[in-house]
């Protein structure tokens, strides 16, 4: 939803892109400013922590070792709905699975879907946006009309329809969520390219006969990279929320995988006898999204020359 706003503020982005300097110094300066932003550092810290959990769960899973207190997917009907206690910190669910282990395990899925979906929308969006912006004319018109079509359907409805058609699964959730946010990136990239295209060094490169793809890769993209980093960071938070929403509606991952939104959707039926099943996954989602928002905001401030002057 927030993406609707940002995708429409091409004007601001063009402005921002005009301040773009040399790529290396730009990223470096961003980092310097970021370090002074307490909120962003907290966000970054939480993200590192989540990534660490996700990686260790994933790697230990690959090695066949169990580092979680319990097997997150093992159901045991004799243990259903145990309230949080010393043995089960977050309690157990209807099928007697340890919620603490499931929430930690869920980190893996949420982060993976978030990052993978953004990679899809980012790469496709950047590609389409660059072509549209650089080529202009008819190509531009066609690509951007298709983007407009996708933007005209609320992204959550589009994602639901994709999932209903494709079926449940992590891979499918990645595709559905990735597809629906392509237009956003395409529009940002196109707008930025329009603004740097006329710069002297791009014109110079054209004169010396560089190929189009080389000009885009070597001269244009590096100049908008920080902008893309900001969008991608905020994009991950949206993707995590979308994943949770799909899971909540019963359209997320295949069982028995732990996914936070799916856990919330199931917990909804037990708000009286087991409210804790509703609380912890909600906190996990909010914390993850919050972390990416903090970092994304910090990055944006770091990028925004006006706030740098302050």
């Amino acid at each position: 939803m927030g993406k609707k706003y940002s995708s429409n503020s091409d004007g601001n982005l063009i402005q921002a892109a005009e301040y773009v300097e040399k790529p290396e110094s730009q990223l470096k300066e961003m980092w310097e400013t970021l370090r002074q932003n307490k909120a962003a550092v907290v966000g970054l810290f939480i993200i590192c922590f989540l990534v660490l959990i996700a990686l260790s769960v994933w790697v230990s899973g690959l090695l066949g070792k169990q580092i979680l207190p319990y097997d997150p997917n093992h159901s045991d009907m004799t243990k259903s709905f145990i309230w949080p206690n010393a043995e089960h910190w977050f309690g157990t669910d209807q099928l007697g699975r340890d919620l603490f282990s499931r929430i930690l395990d869920g980190t893996k899925i949420s982060l993976f879907v978030g990052v993978a979906a953004v990679s899809i929308s980012l790469s496709t969006g950047v590609l389409l946006g660059s072509i549209a912006g650089y080529r202009g004319g008819r190509t531009d018109a066609i690509i951007m009309r298709v983007m407009d079509m996708m933007l005209a359907i609320p992204s959550i409805l589009l994602a639901i329809a994709f999932m209903a058609a494709l079926g449940k699964g992590i891979d499918k959730a990645v595709i559905a969520i990735g597809l629906v946010s392509i237009p956003e990136y395409a529009r940002i990239v196109r707008a930025s390219i329009l603004s740097v295209k006329e710069n002297d060094y791009v014109q110079a490169a054209k004169v010396i006969g560089s190929s189009d793809s080389r000009i885009i890769m070597k001269h244009i993209l590096p100049n908008i990279i920080s902008l893309i980093v900001v969008r991608a960071t905020l994009g991950i938070s949206t993707a995590v929320l979308d994943t949770a929403a799909l899971g909540f509606l019963g359209l997320g991952v295949q069982p028995p995988f732990a996914e936070w939104g799916d856990m919330l959707g199931r917990a909804r039926g037990f708000i009286f006898n087991a409210p804790y099943t509703l609380i912890f996954p909600g906190i996990a989602i909010t914390m993850t999204v919050l972390a990416f928002n903090l970092l994304g905001d910090g990055l944006r401030d770091a990028l925004d020359p006006k706030s740098r002057i302050k």
Binding site: A244, L264, L278, I285, T286
Partner: peptide, 14 residues
């Protein structure tokens, strides 16, 4: 910040 980070359905149920 929390407003943009909370899943809307979770907030609703709460």
């Amino acid at each position: 910040l929390i407003g943009v980070s909370m899943p809307i359905f979770w907030l609703g149920i709460l």
